[in-house]
Design a protein around this nucleic acid. Sequence first.
DNA 1: AAGCGATTTAACCAAACGGTTAATACTAAA
DNA 2: TTTAGTATTAACCGTTTGGTTAAATCGCTT
Lengths: 215, 215
Amino acid sequence: MNQLKEDTEQKIIQAAREVFIEKGMDGARMQEIADRAGINKALLHYYFRSKEKMFDAVFQDIAMEIIPRFSQQVKNTQNLQEVIGSFIEFYNNTFRQNPFLPQFFFHEIWQHPDKLAAFMKSQDVDPAEMLKKNQHRIPQSEDTEFLGQHMIANILGMTLFPHIARPLFQRLFFENSDVVYDQFLAERTDFLMKFISGSIDLDAVKFDENPDDDF
Amino acid sequence: MNQLKEDTEQKIIQAAREVFIEKGMDGARMQEIADRAGINKALLHYYFRSKEKMFDAVFQDIAMEIIPRFSQQVKNTQNLQEVIGSFIEFYNNTFRQNPFLPQFFFHEIWQHPDKLAAFMKSQDVDPAEMLKKNQHRIPQSEDTEFLGQHMIANILGMTLFPHIARPLFQRLFFENSDVVYDQFLAERTDFLMKFISGSIDLDAVKFDENPDDDF
DNA sequence: AAGCGATTTAACCAAACGGTTAATACTAAA
DNA sequence: TTTAGTATTAACCGTTTGGTTAAATCGCTT
């Protein structure tokens, strides 16, 4: 009985997860979640009292799955190269399996930033503190006091972008081919590592002086 | 009369724009749009037949405002440095004024990618073609045939990220201070230009070997 | 097999939603 | 000032929505 209960709860969470991620909190319908879970709609309210509470549970479920796994992966690395490498690989794997996930997270970032930040704190995930701890190892720049923040933004941005913009980017630059895009993503880890360590010569890159090109 | 008509139409579009951007297509309510425009709800259907058509109009309105302005700004530049510079500046300005805009675009990217791609084509905005035109000026790499795509992803990612993740990023790394974050954004153009041209020495950046740090 | 709490369902509900209608107010031309 | 078309509104409508309820079913204990 207890086993069955856990079972249904998991079926519901799984279905809710799919729908919430694909459609967003507002676009999701309780009926569709019930249908996908293969149960009656009233059961949703039996397990989770309201749509909002259900969404929170789903979010927690997802975050608990992603954040600690990522956190541990980073912990086991020591220099920047390693961090970046495992970081990019982690995201490539995660998002290839769950394409809607980034959009889902960004929606939360904008609609409930405090809740999200509080959740991270509650899980002892505190990037700022980690930055502070390593401040003395980051070279001082006369240009900025935010070198660490800039670099984190760079790495996150470059890693995430091909995933969060995939549908458009794939259409614009890869003839909408999944295969080619996956190839592009696969070689990206190496490319970024080289790019970040400054070994790619960009002075050679010049744009056409012909002014009639679009974009 | 014609003047008044244009007036109300603009009032509606303006209000709809706000609500759609803040709440998304699904989260937006026709009543709220009417309220913000200071008119009766039925008028919305008088000008735009349905919610969906109204959303399309709003989207077109926004896209027509952003894309050509950006397109022109890029056209007037010749080398990569200039492109990147004007590009970053453009986004910093645009998104500081419309913080919800990136989220809005990404939602469209995932929910209606074909519509978006078609719209760009209809506006003669074709980044792929521009890339092809300049292919011979991009250095050939033995590692990848997608150097151009990688670089565009890098620049877009690094530029956009601090905007699309702002609520969380600002809380985690800037004690949620608008002033400090704006300062961070302001110095970012310079930082990125230097970073991209490879003049920032990252070999000096090493992470602490102490394994008990979070993140 | 009877009893009992936990689980599941069909039927229902009030509120909110996008959209319609019919009547009114406005504007400009005659 | 009448008239005709446009713009605007109040009231209404059917549907969908998240949520409730009361009854049925299941699984276990005695």
